Computed example of a mutant assay.
Amino acid sequence: MNDGVMIAGCLAGLAGVAGAVSVGAIIARRPGPFLPTGHAIAPPKQIDPLPTVLHRGLGGLTVPVTPGPHGELFLGPGGPQPGRTLRRLVLTPLFARARSRGGRLARDQQVPFRLVVEFVGANREAETLLRAYRMLDQQLRDHAALLSHCEGERLVPGAVTVSVTGIVDVRELLAGEEKRYAFADGTFDDIGSRSAPPTLVPMISEPWNRRFGWDGREPISAEERHLLHALVRQAHEDGRTVRIAGLPDGSRRARRAIWTELGAAGVDVIADVDQLGLVRHLRRHPVSRWVQGAPLPTLAIRRTSPRPHASRPDRHHEPV
């Protein structure tokens, strides 16, 4: 009798432990809060970078792509691998998630998710690159209702903003489009440029070492701090957001020092390969300027991929 009671108690205890483990697993799978400042740089060899980025709540992703057969874009700098396309692994799941959540990737999303498509590889033939860009443009227009876009002089935010960078120059093509669903990546040299207005180049993206030598190991110099704040302020006054990437290799402590300075300067997007470290830092030290960001519109999204439709109300003051 006592043995039976003991066995029953053990089974109940095991069931309780199993239940706790399953609940813990479910909690562990829940995505983190949306971090608009956090931006992931996909490692070249990572097969499927998007799920981890969305799970961690990062507000953007840079993916290297290489043109392949029929103008299709393949992830990574190497040769095309069957099935490893931008459309299959990034665009389709990204927009499916936003469509299923009424026009947002996360419940607390306030600004667009920034997808940076970086053309890489040895093939620099202009015709091949432009054909690949036209394929990208066609794929994006299948998700027009969810994309930030420009119509005339108006920037309209959506769930996702797509920027194109790398070895392909799409500025002239984009400038000639009456309604564009992708944007060119810029540099601080574009500030005040009439040929590259914010409606064409809404985001400035530069590697850290292009203008700065500080590596985070020692305190930043007053000159470099002043330059950083001045450049960010000028970009914001010109109606652009700022993305800083290419941070120097070093210890996590050194990286945290750089992340802290970038946040203090008001950098909108901090891009890094150290996704987990960046997420933990931003959760402890959120960039407060996003608190007052205008919310994204809630859209009634159809299940099928819509084509471009009439413009929405003017929201050109919102970040894109």
Rank of each mutant, 00 (worst) to 15 (best):
P112K: 00
R141W: 00
A132R: 00
P157V: 14
E151Q: 14
A159R: 11
S148P: 02
P207I: 07
P198Q: 04
V120A: 03
Q110N: 09
D185E: 04
Q110G: 06
T128I: 05
V162M: 03
G102W: 14
W208F: 11
G103H: 07
T199F: 13
L147V: 13
A182L: 01
L105S: 06
V162W: 01
Q138P: 05
L140S: 03
V170W: 11
V168F: 06
L136I: 03
F95T: 06
R114V: 08
V120T: 08
I204D: 03
S205H: 10
R134G: 04
A159D: 01
A196R: 15
L200R: 15
F212M: 10
A126G: 10
F119Y: 06
A145P: 08
R154S: 14
R154T: 12
V111H: 07
L140T: 06
K179W: 10
A98Q: 05
L129T: 02
V117P: 02
D137Q: 07
K179E: 07
V111C: 03
R114L: 12
A159Y: 11
P197F: 03
Y133D: 08
T199W: 10
A145F: 01
V164L: 07
A196M: 06
E118R: 15
A145Y: 01
D137M: 02
P157R: 05
A106H: 09
E172H: 15
A182K: 03
E178Q: 11
P157T: 08
R131M: 10
E206A: 09
R97D: 10
L140W: 00
G102R: 10
H149Q: 15
E118F: 07
F188I: 02
H149L: 10
R154F: 08
L129P: 06
L94R: 12
V120K: 06
H143I: 09
I204N: 05
F113I: 05
G176T: 03
V156P: 06
A175D: 07
R141N: 12
R131N: 07
P157F: 14
F183N: 02
V201K: 12
D189R: 15
V160N: 04
R194Q: 14
V160F: 08
D108Y: 08
L130I: 10
E172I: 02
P197W: 01
V120L: 05
G102D: 11
E153H: 11
G176A: 09
T128C: 08
Y133R: 01
L129I: 07
R180V: 00
L136Y: 00
V117E: 05
G176N: 09
A145R: 00
E206V: 13
H149S: 15
W208T: 15
R180E: 00
L130C: 07
W208P: 13
A106Y: 02
F212W: 05
L115W: 00
F183V: 02
V201A: 01
N209T: 06
E125I: 04
A184N: 07
G103I: 05
E206W: 11
R107G: 14
V116Y: 01
F113V: 07
F188S: 00
I204R: 02
P93V: 13
T187N: 03
S163M: 13
A196K: 12
A106G: 09
D189F: 14
A126D: 13
P157W: 11
